[in-house]
C-alpha cells in the first residue's frame, strides 16, 4: 500500500519587508524530492476552501503553501473579518503580495524534500496575483484560474489597488496555464482572447483552456457556479501542467 500521509498545519514565514506572516501548508510525508506550489487565496479570504486546495495539492505530491495575505491587517482574526478589513483598506498592494509570494517560494525551496521548482496557482483575484507572481517571482509554472484585470481596465472610480498587467506580458518568467469560463464577464471571453494574443505575440509558453457552460468560479464545489465537467477537466490540466514543469 502506498504511504500517503500528509502533514497540514499553520506556520509563520517571512514575507514582504521580512515581516512574519501566517501561512497554511500541507506536504507529503513520504520523503523523496518534489516541487512546491504557492496557493493564492481569493479576495474573500484565507478561507476553508483555499486550505482545502492546499491539502489537495499535497495529496497530488507537492509541498503546498497558502500565505495569509491579510496577516498584517488582521493577525489571528476570523478569515471573513480579515477579508472585510483588507477590503475596507483598499485591498492588498501588489508590491506587498509579490514580497509575500517570494517569501513563500523561499520557504518551499528550504524544505528538505524540495527539488527547487515552485509553481503558483490562484483563483478569481488570486488568478491575477498568480500571473503577477509569474512576472516578479522565481517560479517555474503559473496557473491563472479566471483572474480578472490581467487584461482590461478596472472601471472609473475603482477604490481598490488593482492595475491591469497586459502591458507586462513580455516579462512573464514562467509557463502559464489559463483556465476560463466562456460565460464569465470578468474576464470576458474577449479579454481571454486578448490575453492569448499577447502571449502568442510575445512567444511565451502557455496553455489557455476555455469551457462552455461555465462562468466565473466554476471550480467552487460549494457554490451554484460549480461546473463538474469544467472543474474535472481543469484539475486534470493543472496536474499535467505541474507534472511537466515542476517534476524532477
Amino acid at each position: 500500500m502506498r504511504h500517503d500521509a500528509v502533514l497540514a498545519e499553520t506556520i509563520g514565514i517571512r514575507g514582504a519587508n521580512d515581516d512574519q506572516i501566517e501561512a497554511y501548508t500541507a506536504r507529503p510525508l513520504d520523503g523523496g524530492s518534489r516541487g512546491g506550489v504557492i496557493v493564492v487565496h481569493h479576495m474573500p479570504g484565507y478561507d476553508r476552501e483555499s486550505k482545502e486546495t492546499v491539502r489537495r495539492l499535497a495529496t497530488e505530491g507537492y509541498n503546498a503553501i497558502c500565505p495569509n495575505l491579510y496577516s498584517r491587517e488582521a493577525p489571528g482574526a476570523d478569515p471573513s473579518d480579515a477579508a472585510a478589513t483588507a477590503r475596507a483598506n483598499g485591498g492588498v498592494p501588489d508590491a506587498r503580495f509579490v514580497g509575500d509570494a517570494a517569501g513563500a517560494a523561499r520557504w518551499l525551496r528550504s524544505l528538505p524534500t524540495a527539488n527547487g521548482k515552485v509553481g503558483v496557482i490562484g483563483f478569481c483575484s488570486g488568478g491575477r496575483q498568480s500571473f503577477l507572481a509569474a512576472l516578479e517571482v522565481d517560479v517555474q509554472a503559473a496557473v491563472d484560474c479566471y483572474g480578472a484585470f490581467v487584461v482590461g481596465e478596472p472601471p472609473d472610480g475603482f477604490p481598490l489597488q488593482v492595475v491591469p498587467l497586459a502591458d507586462r506580458v513580455g516579462e512573464l518568467r514562467a509557463p502559464l496555464l489559463g483556465l476560463f469560463g466562456n460565460e464569465d464577464s470578468h474576464p470576458s471571453p474577449a479579454q481571454v482572447d486578448e490575453l492569448e494574443k499577447l502571449l502568442r505575440e510575445e512567444g511565451k509558453t502557455y496553455e489557455i483552456h476555455r469551457y462552455d457552460d461555465a462562468g466565473h468560479s466554476f471550480f467552487s464545489v460549494d457554490r451554484p457556479a460549480y461546473r463538474p465537467a469544467a472543474a474535472v477537466d481543469g484539475w486534470e490540466r493543472i496536474a499535467a501542467f505541474y507534472a511537466t514543469h515542476l517534476g524532477d
Binding site: 481569493h42 479576495m43 474573500p44 477590503r87 475596507a88 485591498g91 478569481c124 483575484s125 479566471y146 480578472a148 484585470f149 478596472p154 472601471p155 475603482f158 477604490p159 481598490l160 488593482v162 464569465d184 464577464s185 470578468h186 466565473h216 468560479s217
Partner: peptide
Amino acid sequence: MCTYSTEKI
C-alpha cells in the same frame, strides 16, 4: 467573480 467593486461610506 471577485468583483473588487466596493462602495465605502
